[in-house]
Design a protein around this nucleic acid. Structure first.
Length: 425
RNA sequence: GGAGGGGUGGCAGAGCGGUUGAAUGCACUGGUCUUGAAAACCAGCGAGGGUGAAAGUCCUCCGAGAGUUCGAAUCUCUCCUCCUCCGCCA
């Protein structure tokens, strides 16, 4: 959520910036609503004040044994008046709040303009795609051909479309990737490893802004309480700081967690129907940082680098792109996508998305730090990125390290995790 | 699942219908004292919001929500959550 004060004071500037994100800020509607709010709030609070001071008078008078009927006389009308005003005020504030909840974050100044992904800018390219002397296969062909490999048919029986069963060496490779990623982030990049709930409440989803706008992407549980399966570890991990005031010396907080992610993938029916690219359940190693506002720009660069290291160690060719305004996520001020080379598609596909949310999530969560310069609680900045999406990393390895006979070489960096297995066949 | 007891400021812990946003202690910040530190003493010290140029001022918040009342941290109801005991269980 944006700062309501800022919207009040700089509506035109913000509207201009939000146009980059293809969002049309309704300044007029906001001005009207806020004008009504202001008037009504003043009246309501004046009435509350009157009620409070008269009630205190009654208390005093009673203690002194005096007659209170005179003071009591006007109270009934104040009460009624207050009740109706309060109700209207609540309605107004809800309407304002609903609107503000739907306003996306302001893009950073260096975010390129553009309507869709075609306007994203390539920042960096690492490695070069291998040249194959034979006809290449895609990951599902490769995986299904393996004796102990990918088994989509069984998963369909067990559950339905967009799930997979991994067997034997592939399952091990999947597990090895998780260990490998977590080890690097904890040992080399300074993140604390967390194990978190895979089910969260609605409040947490509001905090990181999956709700109220993106509820259709979530799996909701049938339960007395509003419980949801997490769509990403970002939700439980970032919400750790919800309603907290952090001490400056404890910042930055750097967390990593491996979790499954559950997405209903509503509205993506035609896309990536084959294979493991888009599943209802996949696993991810997430990295999250909670930082002082002045440090969030540098933190995004660092965090993205941390995700890149994984790709480099795995010898997977990739490129780094900065998302243009139109492609930027709802809460993000700036996002780098890391895209890995997929030989079967002859293109780069997203394998990590690293974003800085500035104070957007922090305001929703009331996640603050005590600024020693002011002594006051101020909002933190939050960042997160995939480091990396495990299923897609597995796909990339299968495809990039495939050999003519359909076997797959394991990248050297994973050898310590594979119990001697060097080739999948 | 059953039975009982709790949830108050950074922490501990009073308050159980009226001048209580909340005693007291610890912690923290500033000051006095001291060569310096400690101790002692004095003062300050929750969060969110409105309004205002500012000083200030007003409103809201004692797990959450609803209710009773002129007035609720205090009374009633529902929910959440924690602890102890019993049962079941990976």
């Amino acid at each position: 959520m944006l700062d309501p004060k800022r919207i009040r004071n700089e509506a035109n500037i913000l509207a201009e910036k939000l146009r980059l994100k293809k969002f049309d800020l309704d300044i007029e509607k906001l001005a009207i609503l806020d004008g009504q709010r202001k008037a009504l709030q003043l009246e309501t609070e004046a009435l509350q004040n009157e009620r409070n001071s008269k009630s205190k008078l009654i208390g005093k008078a009673k203690a002194a044994g005096e007659d209170v009927s005179e003071i009591l006389a006007g109270m009934e009308s104040i009460k009624k008046d207050l009740e109706s005003k309060k109700e209207k005020l609540d309605e107004l504030q809800n309407a304002l709040n609903d609107y503000l909840q739907g306003v996306p974050n302001i893009p950073d100044d260096d975010v390129p303009a553009g309507d869709d992904e075609s306007a994203n800018k390539i920042v960096d390219t690492w490695g070069s795609p291998a040249q194959f002397e034979f006809e290449i296969k895609d990951h599902s062909e490769l995986g299904e051909a393996l004796d102990l490999g990918l088994d989509f048919a069984t998963a369909t029986k067990l559950t339905g479309a967009r799930f997979v069963v991994m067997q034997g060496h592939i399952a091990r490779l999947h597990r090895a990737l998780i260990q490998f990623m977590l080890d690097i982030h904890t040992n080399e990049h300074g993140y604390r490893e967390l194990n978190v709930p895979y089910i969260v409440n609605a409040e947490s989803l509001y905090g990181t802004s999956q709700l109220p706008k993106f509820g259709e992407d979530l799996f909701k549980l049938e339960h007395e309480q509003d419980f949801y399966l997490i769509p990403t570890a970002e939700v439980p991990v970032t919400n750790i700081v919800r309603d907290e005031i952090l001490e400056a010396e404890n910042l930055p907080l750097k967390y990593t967690a491996h979790t499954p992610c559950f997405r209903s993938e509503a509205g993506s029916y035609g896309k990536d129907t084959k294979g493991m690219i888009r599943q209802h359940q996949f696993e991810k190693v997430e990295i999250v940082q909670i930082v002082k506002p002045s440090e969030s720009g540098a933190a995004l660069e660092e965090l993205t680098k941390h995700a890149e290291v994984i790709l480099q160690r795995l010898e997977l060719p990739y490129r780094k792109v900065v998302l243009c305004g139109g492609d930027l996520g709802f809460g993000s001020a700036k996002t780098y996508d890391l895209e890995v080379w997929l030989p079967s598609q002859g293109t780069y596909r997203e394998i990590s998305s690293c974003s800085c949310f500035t104070d957007f999530q922090a305001r929703r969560m009331q996640a603050r730090w005590r600024n020693p310069d002011t002594g006051k609680p101020e909002l933190v900045h939050t960042l997160n990125g995939s480091g990396l999406a495990v299923g897609r990393t597995l796909v990339a390895i299968l495809e990039n390290f495939q050999r003519e006979d359909g076997s797959v070489q394991i990248p050297a960096a994973l050898k310590p995790y594979m119990n001697g297995v060097e080739i999948l066949n």
